[in-house]
Design a binder for these strands. Structure first.
Length: 359
DNA sequence: GATCCGTGGGG
DNA sequence: TCCCCAAGGAT
């Protein structure tokens, strides 16, 4: 093993993070094996998502669906409801598709090779390598954002992203050991998350500071080099929150594909398209006593949305088609993305208010 | 290769 | 407040 590999594994043995989906090096040494289902589920949830945001969702999913077979038996809508709030909803749709395939075509067991894993929906280069190394002990180069940062610093790779990816992969492959490849991959990610951070890395306490070319010659914070990002356009639209006399809100389903695909929404104008939506009350989905309830702003990955909010009370339930009515208290159980919770909260301020403990 | 896809937290 | 970005994948 290379010096870097030995040092990092040694560091990991005493400084690894304790995570709900992780087998500690001590337990691993004692013969505890990782559950591929839990590894897969955690890796999908962790895509572009912070550890702290994932933890409660991981607990909820594994409690509700302890095995991939349980998950396959759930409906897509069940999965979307449980995923609501975590973002990137195509992950949830692909999660369900993947579970179905694993159960129907692989007898409930994940393929134990990178190519087989990559063929499954929602599993790309990173996730296939992560599952292969963490769950199956295959010495595969696991490259995520942390690894990109650590490697470009270790070797002072100044090629801008994403053009540096091939070089990064080669460097990672070269230091990935045949023994404990999963621990090594997780060690690289822990190092990137806790010490080799994007800003103000803690080089003084880094186990690899003697090996870091960026630290020796310049400032590690310069790496990885990235192209400047473009500004976000602003889109506008309107959302319509209709309430019935018996305290229910009208919801409908979004189309399966694209932004917030398959999730629930209150009726809105067409802000999803490049063109801005209508912000006027005349664009309401059905006639009612619409009253302005202000506006909300929500920032997506590639645009900013400003929605005018309208509310109407005492709406006849038979006036609206292609949707359903739900009690305000039951809204939490719906597959509502955050932007829709904001819209509803603007119209019904206590819709998602947390229950106060009785005095 | 570039673009589309959420959200919440930290500096 | 604003900007950055976090264990990426699909098209």
């Amino acid at each position: 093993m290379q010096p870097i590999t030995v040092k990092l594994l040694h560091w990991y043995d005493s400084h690894h993070r304790i995570l709900p989906w992780r087998i500690s090096p001590r337990d691993r040494l004692a013969g505890v094996v990782a559950d591929p289902y839990r590894v897969w589920l955690s890796e999908i949830m962790l895509q572009q998502t912070t550890v702290e945001a994932v933890k409660p969702y991981f607990r909820a999913f594994t409690e509700k669906w302890p095995t991939v077979t349980h998950l396959a038996s759930a409906s897509q809508d069940d999965v979307l409801r449980a995923w609501a709030g975590l973002g990137y909803y195509s992950r949830a749709r692909n999660l369900k598709k993947c579970a179905d395939i694993v159960c129907a075509e692989f007898g409930g067991r994940f393929p134990i090779d990178v190519a087989g894993l990559k063929s499954l929906p929602g599993i790309g280069d990173y996730t296939a390598a992560a599952i292969a190394s963490i769950a199956f002990d295959l010495p595969t180069a696991v490259v995520d954002g942390n690894v990109e940062r650590v490697i470009t610093r270790l070797y002072a790779l100044a090629t801008p992203m994403p053009f540096a990816k091939p070089e990064i992969r080669l460097r990672m492959q070269a230091i990935t050991p045949d023994e404990r490849p999963g621990d090594f991959a997780q060690a690289m990610m822990d190092l990137g998350a806790t010490i080799c951070t994007p800003r103000r890395p803690a080089c003084v306490i880094c186990p690899l500071n003697d090996n870091c070319e960026a630290l020796r010659t310049t400032d590690p914070e310069f790496f990885p080099v990235k192209a400047p990002k473009k500004e976000k356009p602003v889109r506008v639209g309107a959302a319509f929150v209709a309430a019935s006399t018996d305290g229910e809100v009208f919801l409908r389903s979004r189309i399966e594909t694209g932004l917030l695909g398959g999730m629930a929404e209150v009726p809105t104008t067409g802000w999803t398209a490049r063109l801005d939506g209508d912000t006027d009350v005349d664009a309401a989905p059905f006639p009612a006593n619409w009253i302005s309830a202000g506006s909300i702003t929500h920032v997506f990955t590639h645009f900013e949305l400003r929605l005018a909010i309208y509310r109407a009370g005492e709406v006849q339930k038979d006036i609206a088609a292609d949707g359903w009515w739900v009690k305000v208290e039951k809204l939490t159980g719906e597959a509502l993305p955050t932007v829709m919770k904001k819209a509803i909260a603007a119209a019904i301020p206590d819709a998602f208010a947390k229950r106060r403990k009785e005095e």
